[in-house]
Amino acid sequence: MPAITVDELTKRFGQTVALEALSFQVEDGEVFGFLGPNGAGKSTTINVLLDFVRPTSGSASVLGMDAQRQSREIRQRTGVLPEGVELYDRLTARQHLEFVIDSKDATDDPEALLERVGLTDAIDRKAGGYSKGMAQRLMLAMALVGEPDLLILDEPSTGLDPNGAREMREIVREENERGATVFFSSHIMEQVETVCDRVGILRDGQMVAVDSVEGLRDSVDGGTTLRVTVDRIDDDALQAVRSLPDVTDATVESHAPPTVVVTVDGSKTAVLSALEDRGIEIQDFETTEASLDDVFQSYTTDTETEVHAQ
């Protein structure tokens, strides 16, 4: 049973179309990265899942339950880190957590939760004085209450420094190992690539790609870039490399020292062998994978790159 099923979901706000016939599934037990530029409709999707807004048409189900009719049951088993939310200024971290624990009828210890997110020092301080990062840590702790089956994290890295973002990803991993499904939205690719099993890319209210991180890399032109420094280079050798089946392009980048840049989709050793077969001595080589940022860019901006939605 999928943890989240969104089926032909459309949401209009007056004249504005926020979501247009959006369909996707999040499998039970996976970490799903929900990626898209600001304004793509990520928050609207999450708002529908939590019944904050009602669909214009289409439907959504969470943990096998209808997102509208059984919202209370869904939210009992879901931990949420909402985006763009202010805490209660006059309440301490402890009081925030006690409220969540009370609301979910859970038995968690506020101190243990704050220790996980690294906010133990501020336990009895009022949230009004928190920095953005501290507020985000507290909200993550609130999402963890009651060992939820599903975690919905809307832009969880907001306000966190790189270290904080890494810790947050670590918690996502731990929660996933415990058995929780994690639905994780972000507008930054690198936030999701290290933790997510699959990534869905949303653009203008539509899913333009859903795939594993590897699959997304492969789906975009580029593949791996191989940079080989050699003792000499000739046209014959270059032609031999270009004729290899996995190679899409090969150019001479510089002549001192001679460097060949090869774009390859498959075996890199085949390239190196082809050069060596021509008696060329390889002095050094490095590979650069197409960055996922490039992948994200290609899906979410208007370039000529052809996109194969799946």
Binding site: L50, D51, F52, S71, R72, E73, R75, Q76, T78, V80, P82, G84, V85, E86, L87, Y88, V100, S103, K104, M139, M142
Partner: peptide
């Protein structure tokens, strides 16, 4: 306005 209603409504409260 502050968005904190989402904290309340993310919890199992109608």
């Amino acid at each position: 306005e502050a968005g904190s209603i989402k904290i309340l409504l993310s919890l199992p409260h109608s």
